[in-house]
Every structure is written in C-alpha cells, then in structure tokens.
Design a protein around this nucleic acid. Structure first.
Lengths: 207, 207
DNA sequence: AAGTTTACCATACAAATGTATGGTATTTAG
DNA sequence: CTAAATACCATACATTTGTATGGTAAACTT
C-alpha cells in the first residue's frame, strides 16, 4: 500500500519528523499550515489524509497532535555528530557536523549536550572504542577521575581528568599514551564538557 | 526558586515525563485527569500551575500539550531495567524490574524495546561489558551475525546469532566460551529480540 | 474532450482544550 | 485559633483543533 509521496507530501512528512525531534511533539494542523504559509487548515488536513492513505503516518482521530509516524525506516533518525575527538592523539575538531549517526527513535537530545564520535583507542581500558559516540554535557564541573572532552590548541581530546595544584593532567587509560599536563592558565586550553555516557549503535550490522 | 514538589505533584511530573517517553508527546489536561481519576481538568490545571511555579515545567499558554519539562537534573530519565542477561553463562531472568538506570533522553528507545543489564564478559570482544545496558528490540527479525537476546530454559543470554539448516548457533565473542547449538524446534528456546544499541552511563563516577 | 489527481481556498461546526472563577474539606504553619 | 497551603469539585467560556463539505485552478491521464 506504500505508494510514493509527492514532493509537497514529502516536505510535510519531513516537517513532522523534524518537529518531533526538535520540539518533542508533533505539530497541530494550524502550526503546519502556518509553517507552509497555508491560509487554512483544510489544506493540511487533505495532505495528511493523503500521506496517511499512503501509509506513512497514522492519525488518532479527534485528538490534538496525535500524528504517529509509522515509516519503518524512519525509525532511526540521523543526528549530527559535531566532530571527531581523539582518545589518543589530538585531532582537529570540525566546525560543522562531520557525520550523522542513527540514534534510535525519534528522540530529543538532552538540552545543551551534544555528541562526539571517538576516534582512537587510548581509552580502550575505559571501554570506549573508536567509533563510539560519547554524550558530552558542557554544564557540569569536572571531578577528578572523570572522563572529559577538552580543547587543546584547536584540537579536541577525550581523556580522564585530574586536577593538581597548578596544573591539570589529562591521562589516557591506555598505557601506550603518556599523560598530557597543562598549566591551569594555559590560554588555548578549555574543558568542553564531561562525558556522561557512551552509546553504540548495533542496528546496522554486526561489528 | 525551585521548591520541593509535593507527593502528588511529583507523581504528575513523573507521569508527564513517562508519557513523553512512551508516547512521544505530553498529555493534555484531560488525559492527565483521566489517568489520575480526577473528575475535571481544573484540578490538573492547578497542579500544573503549582509545578510550573516551582520551576519544573513551562507551559506555552493556549496551546495543546505544550508542556515543556525544564528540570535540568531530569537530563536523565529513569527507566526500568527488566532483568540481567548473561553474556557468559545463562542467568535467570527476573520477572520484574531489578533496577533502574538513568538513560539519557537521546538514547531513547524504539517503541516496545526494553533494557537489559549485561552480566559476564563473554561479549567483551564485541565491546559489550559486564554492567552495560543493552537496548533490545523485540520486533526485528534476527539476521546472521547480529547480537540477540534469547531465552533458553528460563534463562536469558546475549550472544551472536547464526542460523544454520536445522539449528541455531549462539556464539560468544570471547573464545573462552563455547557456542551454544540449539535445534530449531527445541521448545524452551525463544529469541527475545535483537540488540540495537549499547549504553553505558559514565555520570556517576569514573570506572 | 472528459476525467482524475494534486494543490490550494473558504466556510462551518462539534468536540477538545486551556483557562478563569468560585466553592469545600483537610492539613500544616505560625 | 487563624491563616495559608493543599487537594479536590463544579461550572462557564473563549480558543484551538480536527473534520466535513464545497469550490477553483492547474497538470496529467486516457
């Protein structure tokens, strides 16, 4: 029953998905109409009916915002990964998203936190591997022993954090890499955030 | 400004969060009222006002379902972990939740999927370790090479799945453990679901 | 040329929704 | 004891929302 969508229908479906990611809730007919410049909701209504007929969404009648997205392959939603971060030697951070990963379900990012893809194996004894996605929270104070993301001379690293008297030590879990020691006042050093979780998608294929 | 919530207010906030996770959208006043057995929406309305006053939510006036959860420390949402699952030798599965973990909202799970805590190290070469939380989707067909959760004689295991002619082979990544071979018709064997993701919380303290 | 699909508009309406106001009973704080 | 906070109820009302119906115009079948 799944026919192709027309261009406009595709745009509306994209908008539905986009809203569910960014706002957390699907829009109302009025909001869709306003976004696309339609002067009344009936137009949207008819588009939604067409999209539903083609099997991409399911509407719960009478209830507001009750648009369910039923497309199987939209189950996983691409989210931008802001950059790669080196667990071993520093890597340059990318200005924009370099990649997207498929995070399960239509989910909202925790406020203010972001994702980084780890490259390198220096944290392998902390069970973080190349390709893993770390969830970074920039609003927490790092404590000794926690794993942090830091910027050092325009490159980003993921290391375990230790605060000393006048300096900060960033150590790798992997003994092959030596600790980085930075003076606290070193200008081009900044803690980006602490790693609050590690996520790895297994959906595509086996490792 | 963040005063303590009363018991009932806490329950309502929990319900809001829960609905946002499971249904994807916040409930309407009527839905909340019906869930708690209130005979009219005004009661809910007053509770929401109280919760908003205490700074836990933010309401967008006039709009339906426009309840935003603003609690910073609700960054992580408690989710029940349904049981432990053995990566090495089979472990008994628990009927009810054995634990809750704080799952970041980004790693939110596809509908119907659930969490299991891995115990044992037989999958350590697939980078899954004891204590990790696996996200299990019961609605996907397992393909060869994927990591699945299976029930075998009332115990659950996490293994890599291989389908043969008349039997199914469940292999560990760790060479110390031997593959389990099951006849396809073996009665007390069932694939529970496939592992779509692995999550590990790093927030509490360093490993 | 006639019919179908697509893409809009306008109007109308019932139900859902949020909100305002006032009331009662119980508990808690001063 | 009095006042305030809490936890409900009832009623009322303006919007919002979803939906039904009918109409116009362009594009594309057949």
């Amino acid at each position: 029953m799944k026919t192709e969508l027309t261009e406009i229908q595709k745009k509306i479906l994209d908008y539905l998905i986009d809203q569910k990611i960014s706002k957390g809730i699907p829009p109302t007919l009025a909001e869709i109409a306003s976004h696309f410049g339609y002067k009344n909701r009936a137009t949207v209504q008819q588009h939604l009916q067409a999209i539903e007929k083609k099997g991409y969404i399911k509407k719960n009648p009478k209830l507001s915002r009750a648009i369910e997205i039923t497309v199987e392959d939209k189950f996983f939603i691409p989210r931008p990964v802001l950059g790669e971060v080196a667990a071993g030697n520093p890597l340059t951070i990318y200005p924009d998203a370099i990649d997207t990963i498929e995070l399960p379900t239509i989910a909202r990012m925790p406020k203010d936190s972001f994702l980084l893809k780890v490259k390198g194996d220096s944290l392998k004894d902390a069970y973080i591997f190349s390709g893993d996605i770390v969830i970074v929270n920039p609003n927490l104070e790092p404590k000794n022993g926690q794993i942090v993301v830091a910027i050092l001379d325009d490159a980003a690293v993921v290391k375990r954090f230790y605060k000393k008297k006048n300096e900060i030590e960033l150590v790798s879990e992997n003994p092959e890499y030596k600790p980085i020691v930075i003076d606290k006042k070193y200008p081009s050093f900044k803690i980006v955030g602490i790693v609050v979780g590690v996520y790895r998608s297994m959906s595509k294929k086996a490792v």
